[in-house]
């Protein structure tokens, strides 16, 4: 049962990340969906990949994005 919830959370997280106006929130949501995918890898019998994905998808990628946003601008202007 838990895998379906994780899938839905991951997909919702990715959609929500793309509709945020605040890019920092989008970054955090990207990290959440990356973490969900790592959890799914664990369920799909790939624990070694899950470890890597947990580090890369839930920590390194959001940190990279956060650094880029810190150096540029935080709000996504619509126009």
């Amino acid at each position: 049962m838990i895998e379906y919830i994780v899938m839905i959370v991951g997909i919702l997280g990715s959609i929500l990340a793309l509709v945020q106006r605040d890019l920092l929130k989008a970054t955090i949501l990207t990290g959440i969906s990356g973490g969900c995918i790592a959890f799914l890898f664990q369920i799909l019998l790939a624990p070694d990949v899950a470890l890597t994905q947990a580090i890369v998808g839930a920590a390194i990628v959001p940190v990279f994005l956060a650094i880029a946003i810190y150096k540029t601008q935080r709000v996504d202007k619509d126009d």
């Binding site: 990340a17 890019l23 989008a26 990207t30 998808g57 990628v61 994005l65 880029a68 946003i69 996504d76």
Partner: peptide, 19 residues
């Protein structure tokens, strides 16, 4: 930035497909 986030989702989807 959002384009790049989207590209990382494509990448993750492809990885998940293989797994």
């Amino acid at each position: 930035i959002k384009k790049i986030i989207g590209l990382s989702f494509i990448e993750e989807g492809a990885n998940m497909f293989l797994i």
